[in-house]
């Protein structure tokens, strides 16, 4: 059964797969994680703060994003962002937004909802006494958050944040709906061009597995290193 498989196709397309495909996948993962954590932390702070209305807006945002399939949001943003851009800037025509920018915005906004919930749990895990001690020293609310609560929350939540990033790394393959060439997209194109579907999809699966598995082992080691001494 396996006698007519030709794995040489993998070797021949390595450059395209990794230089084009994987570079795209990793760039999108890294930027969306960074943006998602920053935005997510802000949403978590909004949700936990005692300003009027903001907690409800933050909660509504999180619930909304988590109730939609990611593919739908990717599509939706791709067709909507040009119009929203035009509306904001007052331009007459829809603004041309590249597929990459559109997917980056989508993933950032989508992941922010998940990162927000992780950060919310992290912030709530910090004892009230820590906040009181910060205030008692004369620190302001932003100073207490920036110097005492968030650094501890990040450390406590690091394993979960990185696990979510690994999920994001796998989810970026959904950009195929925008005809973008990520790693899976590249593999898929070669597979169809050369009629080597089994070989290419097997190889793609092995690569995704290897990277995700290595990353989760790394998370475990990192966890031991960054844990707060108690």
């Amino acid at each position: 059964m396996f006698s007519n498989l030709d794995f040489d196709v993998v070797r021949r397309s390595l450059g395209y797969l990794f230089l084009d495909g994987m570079t795209f996948t990793l760039t999108l993962t890294a930027l969306a994680t960074l943006g998602g954590i920053v935005l997510g932390t802000l949403i978590a702070l909004m949700r936990l703060g005692n300003l009027p209305v903001l907690p409800k807006i933050a909660a509504a945002y999180v619930n909304f994003m988590r109730s939609l399939p990611l593919v739908l949001v990717i599509f939706w943003f791709y067709f909507l962002v040009p119009y929203i851009g035009a509306w904001i800037t007052g331009a007459e025509r829809p603004i041309a937004v590249g597929a990459f920018t559109s997917s980056l915005i989508t993933f950032t906004l989508f992941e922010a909802a998940y990162f927000a919930e992780i950060m919310r749990a992290g912030i709530q895990s910090i004892p009230k006494g820590q906040v009181a001690a910060g205030y008692a020293l004369g620190l302001t609310y932003p100073q207490v958050m920036a110097n005492i609560v968030l650094p501890q929350a990040f450390r406590n939540m690091l394993p979960v944040l990185l696990t979510q990033t690994i999920i994001l790394f796998q989810d970026t393959s959904l950009v195929y709906v925008l005809s973008l060439t990520d790693f899976l997209g590249a593999a898929s194109k070669v597979a169809q061009r050369d009629g080597r579907l089994v070989e290419m999809y097997l190889f793609a699966a092995v690569v995704y597995f290897a990277i995700s598995f290595a990353a989760s082992s790394l998370v475990k080691r990192l966890q031991a290193r960054t844990a707060i001494i108690r």
Binding site: P127, G129, Q130, A132, A133, Y135, A136, L137, G138, N147, I148, Q152, I228, I229, R230
Partner: peptide, 15 residues
């Protein structure tokens, strides 16, 4: 508060 020192039951050092 910066002029009023406070010591807590559970120390509350920043770990």
């Amino acid at each position: 508060r910066s002029r009023v020192g406070m010591v807590f039951q559970h120390f509350e050092l920043f770990p």
